[in-house]
Design a protein around this nucleic acid. Structure first.
Lengths: 163, 163
DNA sequence: ATCAACAAGTTGATGCATCAACTTATAAGA
DNA sequence: TCTTATAAGTTGATGCATCAACTTGTTGAT
């Protein structure tokens, strides 16, 4: 597409096509969450992480690690979700300090149903249309990509609810 | 990862791994642009689209179509880039109206060198590590994904500088 | 027990993406 | 030509992601 000899036309097409497909899939999944449950991908990730957490109260830091998010991202996101009533910051220890955060009843209900819907969408849009060979190729490529990047850089391990 | 029988563990792993790999690649490419040329992916897309435009002046709408972006996104982006001096809105017709936008000299230089760097990075991070079978699988999957989504929905065709 | 260093958490600022509302051009009909 | 409908473009608001700066707790050495 772009005139240069660094990349052959076919190579650029592959890149372009792949990027577009990937973007469409991500959009599709995200729109599913929005349409069916009225939540964003970021909200979904937090809800799931809290649902899967050990206790009813989690420290912000622990949540951040589960998500692979830096603390300020978590904090901002929690602020927004708190104002939506999905989550609450509660006093956590003996003293009256506002440490620890947990799901509200609304948040818990939403999380539980959204998970099912999300997984269904992942199946419908990603897994079902995948031939076995494609699945194998994608798995192999993904793993080597992750190795290449993570071995020589920062570790970005995350649940992040994938998508 | 998530306990449910909607997805088998292996299936979820595939999804999770694939999403992570895709995110890492996108990040890598974007960080390359930022590190080597000090521009974002959005800025790069606009620079390239303007460079490839027919004349020195383009209408915002035409730019939007080339990018596959809606008009307000284009407008906001142009405002930011104008303030960085990469782009300028100029009088376009007979009258003194501010229609049409074009690259500044800085913008043009940046565009020209960034393209080469970007394509090199695409090659290094995406194309080179790809085996022929993986390339074929990814191409096939991408095309069917695009068909599935676009055939029954909005057309999201875009140059968008892929990544 | 005090104080210094570090960890946890919040806040503000900036850029990007999207939606809705608004203004201004342009073109078509009367 | 005047008017009005539609297209083009801007603006404002909101959410998300990231960086840097700041506050507050916790811990540990003395």
């Amino acid at each position: 597409m772009i005139e240069t000899d660094v990349l052959k036309r076919e190579e650029w097409d592959l890149w372009d096509t792949w990027m577009r497909a990937q973007r469409l899939l991500a959009q599709e999944i995200e729109r599913g969450l929005q349409r069916e449950f009225g939540i964003s991908k970021a909200e979904f990730s937090v809800l799931v992480a809290l649902l899967r957490a050990s206790g009813p109260q989690v420290r912000v830091m622990a949540l951040g690690e589960a998500l692979g998010w830096e603390k300020s991202r978590v904090s901002h996101q929690l602020t927004r979700m708190e104002s939506r009533g999905l989550v609450e910051r509660t006093e956590g220890g003996t003293s009256g300090r506002r440490t620890g955060i947990g799901l509200t009843t609304d948040g818990r209900h939403l999380a539980e149903s959204a998970i099912l819907g999300h997984l269904g969408n992942v199946r419908r849009f990603f897994l079902d249309p995948l031939s076995p060979e494609q699945a194998a190729a994608i798995r192999a490529w993904s793993e080597s990509m992750i190795d290449r990047v993570e071995l020589r850089g920062v570790d970005t391990t995350a649940l992040d609810a994938g998508a």
